[in-house]
């Protein structure tokens, strides 16, 4: 009896090994889904939240009004803003706007709370640098990449 059971197990085990091999062979003959990264690249979906960028206005400059809503919402506190009041001008004047990409967690909340569409997430993901100081993005650097913001509120 034990012999028969052992033979039965052997046959069953071999059969399921065979089924598994057929499955893997089928996949082996398919086209590979991996890509060779530095040579080939994925195309990002338009909404992909890469890094934060400033949206250029009609004059090519930024649209920030220094309302500081983005600073209020930022969970990582990576945005710094310098502003001052000036006589005759309504609101604030922006002196400097800096985002430390090294601290940013790419949540996109700053883009969402911005009432003036001054910020957008652009699908850029290769931001490695050799020096940490290069990760601090100021206004010209934030304006350097322009894309139609698809991630609508």
């Amino acid at each position: 009896m034990r012999v028969f059971r052992a033979i039965g197990r052997l046959v069953k085990g071999t059969w399921w090994l065979f089924v598994g091999m057929v499955t893997t062979t089928k996949h082996f003959l398919r086209r590979a889904i991996t890509i060779q990264y530095p040579k080939e690249r994925f195309e990002q979906w338009p909404r992909f939240r890469g890094r934060v960028a400033m949206v250029a206005g009609d004059d090519g400059g930024h649209k920030c009004t220094a309302c500081a809503q983005c600073i209020r919402v930022c969970p990582a506190a990576c945005i710094t803003l310098e502003r001052h009041k000036e006589g005759g001008v309504k609101g604030f004047v922006v002196d400097g706007y800096v985002i430390d990409i090294g601290l940013c967690i790419y949540c996109g909340l700053c883009v969402e709370v911005c009432n003036f569409d001054a910020l957008a997430m652009v699908p850029e993901y290769e931001m490695s640098v050799y020096d940490k100081a290069e990760l601090v993005y100021d206004i010209p650097k934030l304006l350097s990449r322009q894309l139609e913001p698809e991630f609508k509120k």
Partner: peptide
């Protein structure tokens, strides 16, 4: 990713709904 914008940390729900 095509809906929320991220692959792992989606940050998708909002108070009273969803983001997109």
């Amino acid at each position: 990713e095509m809906t929320t914008g991220q692959r792992i940390t989606f940050n998708y729900p909002r108070f009273g709904g969803v983001a997109a």
